[in-house]
Each structure stands twice: as C-alpha cells, then as structure tokens.
Design a protein around this nucleic acid. Structure first.
Lengths: 169, 169
DNA sequence: TGCCGCAAGTTGACAATGGCAACATGAGCA
DNA sequence: TGCTCATGTTGCCATTGTCAACTTGCGGCA
C-alpha cells in the first residue's frame, strides 16, 4: 500500500510540501513544485491527494499530532508556555493549522485531542485559557507583540482565573 | 486625481475585491475577476495597485479603520466584547487582517491605533487582554468555540488581571 | 481656440498553476 | 505465464498574475 514504483511517494510529496510551507507559508505551496522535488511528474501527487486542499489538510493533521505531542504531560502555566513555544518554533505550520482548510473531520478530532488538555470547549475557564495562549501566539507571530520567553511568561502571568479554576483530573 | 475615464476605478475595484474577500476569503480574490466586476479590462487595476498584495493591503487598511471605529469610546469588558463582535461580523475580513500581507508600514500604524485602546504592547496586562480577546475571536471563527454572545461574555469574565491592572488614562 | 502631454485604460503575450483524461508500466497473484 | 489494477506519465485546458506596448481623452498651455 505504500511502496510501489517510487518507494513511498506519499511521504516524499508530503515532505516536500512540508518544507515549502515551512519556508514560504500557505501560498508557497504548489502541488507541481512538490512533485518536481519528489522527482515525479506533475500529476503523480494526485494519486495520493485528491487536490491541493487535501495535501494541505494532511500537513495540518501532521501539525496537530506534533502539537499534541508537545503538550503531553504538561499542565497549568507550563502548558501555556509550551503552546506558545510550539507556535514560535513552527510559525508557518501553526498559522496553517489555524487558517487552512476548515471543516475537516479528521482534523476536528485531532483538534479535540490537542486541547482537551486545556480543559477546552464548553468550560469557560478552559476556553479562556486557550484563548489567551492562542491569541498571544498569533499576535507574536503577527509581529505585534514581543517574542522573548520572558515577555511571554509575564503576559501569561498577568491573568488569572476569576473563580475557582476547575481542573477535573 | 480620482475621476478620469472610469469615474473612480480605484474605489470600484476595491469594492469588488471587498465583496470577493468577504464571501470567499483570501483565496477568493482574483485581480482579474475584480477588474471584470468593475467593468474594465484585466489590467486596469494595476494602474491603482502595484500588485495583488497591494490590493489586499488596501483591504486590510480599510478593515483596521473599521475596527478602530468599532472600538472607539469603549473600555474594559465592553471593549473586549466589541472586538470579538467585530470579528464575528466580518469573519473573512478579520481573518485577512491578521494573516494577510505582513510587514506593511501603513498597516502597522493602524494596528497601533486600534490597540492602543487595549493598553497594548510593552504593557503585559494590556498584551494579555488583547491576547485573550484576539484568541477568543480566532478560535470562534475557526469553529472551535461557540459563538453565542452569552458564551463570549462568560469566557471574558472567566479571567481577571493578576495584579493591579494599570490603566493609565 | 487648438494642440499636446501624461495619466488612465486596453490589448496581447508569457509562464506557472490546479486539475482532467487518456495512456503506459510493472508488481504480485491466479 | 499472463492479467489486472494501482501507480505514474503525457498532453491538454482554463485561469491567474504580471509585463510591455499601444490607445484614448482630459486639462493645461500657447
């Protein structure tokens, strides 16, 4: 299912695409260019990805896996800092994750995974925490706020939960 | 300086572009299509905008003006809610503003304008407040959090400043 | 008043892209 | 040994951004 003529084209194309996106962002990804870099003809990728969107979606999925891993076994302040740190380490990827192809089932699932950690969704406190770190990350990436770890710590420390922060587990 | 052959092409193209972006987002904007809708030849817009990016940038500038207006004379909780409300009312535009052409001088200026209101920049508390509302807006637009005004209020109410919130003016 | 320059628009061309359709190839099973 | 179907390939098309060269007509100047 993986290795036929090429060896593992799907992975090769994905890798090429990853590089392109990491360097130039969403707009920098061209299916044809990815094919070129993988050493195949311009249409070969379409055997593995329905269209450009699908390729993007795969990249996004990858990203959420990584983010998920980066957040594992962290909680409280540490969790928030790890979240921001991830964004700063993979700016384009992070950006893509939150502005790429919307409404993807698999993607939604991974989303949930990654953020259950923050107590997300219906829980207002969790949502607030998530919003805080997410907004901070975005604004830093946008160049609107400083990116020094010290500043990040200070900002995250400037807020606290209003009521009792409900940590279930 | 404005009205020559067409009447006011710049405005017409801008209007067309605005509509396209509002309906389909960043990717939905095509210079040629905008020209078509303005009833001119495909290259006419280039007399008014250096390239696609420049057109986008103009749209972004517009957006910040509007956002600025929407935030005027508001403070505290009300400010935050207005910020989120703006994002929900102009989803694509808001998105564009924070992921469009980066590193634009004029744009930076308007940025500053819009968020001085939130006490922004070096001030950690202001940055935190901004991060909170911005993150919330983004996550709602992304479909990750509920969009009901009640929920928004609850989330914003779930956080408070850790130390004395320094409101200068 | 009549002419002319320069901004505003137009036409035509090019390379690149996403995507479709028809064809080629070779790995693995019967 | 030979067939089949996934994997790749070749050609093709419409669309797009953008450049270059040409046209048009408003407004100032002689």
């Amino acid at each position: 299912m993986t290795t036929y003529h090429h060896g593992d084209l799907r992975a090769a194309v994905l890798a090429a695409a990853r590089k392109m996106v990491e360097k130039e962002g969403l707009a920098g990804l061209s299916v044809r260019e990815a094919a070129r870099r993988a050493g195949v003809s311009h249409n070969a990728p379409y055997r593995h990805f329905a269209d450009r969107e699908a390729l993007l979606a795969a990249l996004v999925a990858e990203g959420f896996e990584q983010l998920n891993a980066a957040l594992e076994n962290r909680a409280g302040r540490e969790l928030g800092e790890a979240y921001v740190a991830f964004a700063l380490q993979h700016p384009q990827r992070f950006r893509l994750m939150f502005s790429g192809p919307r409404g993807n089932a698999e993607l939604q699932a991974r989303f949930a995974d990654s953020f259950a950690a923050l107590g997300a969704d219906a829980d207002a406190a969790g949502a607030a925490a998530w919003s805080l770190v997410h907004g901070l990350a975005m604004l830093i990436l946008e160049g609107r706020l400083a990116s020094s770890p010290a500043f990040v710590r200070k900002v995250l420390g400037a807020m606290r939960f209003a009521a009792a922060p409900q940590r279930s587990a």
